[in-house]
Amino acid sequence: MNRMEWMGLLLAVGIVTFLFRYAMIGIFANRNLPAWLHALCRQIAPASFAALTVSALFVRGGEVVIALDTPKPWASLVAAIVAWRTRSVLATIGVGMASLYLFKLLF
């Protein structure tokens, strides 16, 4: 693939991404969201971040990988408990990384 094609690809993805981000903001600039969409909006953040989290933790190249003999699932579990109890981003990342290093020593 040559540079022109790369440039074209980046520009195309950039424009499409912006259009996705602007789509609903633009469409509903002058009118109210329909009631069903309004109700759906409350579910968007939980659904999106649950899917992102689980994909990032347990999906590798289209395959589900839950390797319980490796440190990462256990460190994730500790981080999840910390996240739930403290609701702190800093504590979650800090304890999560620390427990990953700890479990790497143990495994």
């Binding site: 990462k72 996240a83 979650t92």
Partner: peptide
Amino acid sequence: FAVPLTFLALLT
């Protein structure tokens, strides 16, 4: 590994 941890924190 900090990337999924960030998503996890936001999720909660």
